[in-house]
Amino acid sequence: MKVNAAKNLAQTKKRRENQFHLYWKHKYLTLMFIPAIIYFLVFKYAPIYGIQIAFKSYRFKDGIFGSPWIGLENFRHLFGVKSFWQVFGNTLIISMYNLIFGFPAPIILALLLNEITHQRFKKTVQTISYLPHFVSWVVLGGLFVQFLSPSLGPINAILKALGRDPIFFLADPKWFRTVLVLTSIWKGVGWRSIIYLASLSGINPELYEAAEVDGANRFKKMLHITLPGLTPVITIMLIFAVGGLIHDNFDQIYNLLISPTVYQVGDVLSTYTYRMGLVKMEYSFATAVGLFTNIISFILILMTNTITKRINEYGIW
């Protein structure tokens, strides 16, 4: 294997000098790919000059090119916000929790579903589990406020029946992040498990049969056949998930962050800048915030990609 790889490397090096003739050699592939190049140039690269707004003070009448440069003023403004680091920290902490607990959740669900032999039950569960994905946070926000209410909510009714004090989940700093993470897992787990379920069907059944003959139990099969079969897709999803660490779920947090008592733990970049009213009104500032988060995101993706490639040769590049 290693020898092969070395040989390949040598060959590709030789070829690199004169790769352009390969476009002709694989003309069908080139033909397929040309529309994509045009698409990305027109719809993604042509508008990219707009990034400069982040370094300008945007004036409607002067347009993007005519607006005056202000250098890093927008970024200074962002970093100068007193709560910036608290809010930035909250974003990362909540995202980390979401990654640690939220990322494996759909995989586990897919694995558990895979163990269900009753086909109709399995399909029904799959279909039901993805329902919450379709209910918007505006509706769910209201429902959760009721559901978690200390006086009327069923969860607290149970706690009270057990002789415990009711918990004001949405106003208690100790609970707020847990609520965020749990509700977001609950909402997305079914939907996100679809990709894993799809990949599961790609695993060769002969492998299971062989393992059975070897006397492997279900847990072992899961560990040694199913999980490795999912590795490529898990890797890709993980890379994207890490890249998304800096992005918070505005819709969710905006609809659940109603109590000032949990600002210290739950206020994130998007909700804070939203309250500043600047995202709606100031292009320059909004672009600067977007650029800042995207650069971080890009760096995170590059890093994860490098790491995963070291570990298991899968990656975006």
């Binding site: 600002y263 500043m276 600047l278």
Partner: peptide
Amino acid sequence: QGKYKTELDKIQEETYVSIIIGD
């Protein structure tokens, strides 16, 4: 206002609520 208001509102909301609920 753009520079200060969000921050001021935030500390005020936190202060008022925590005083009322006795924190």
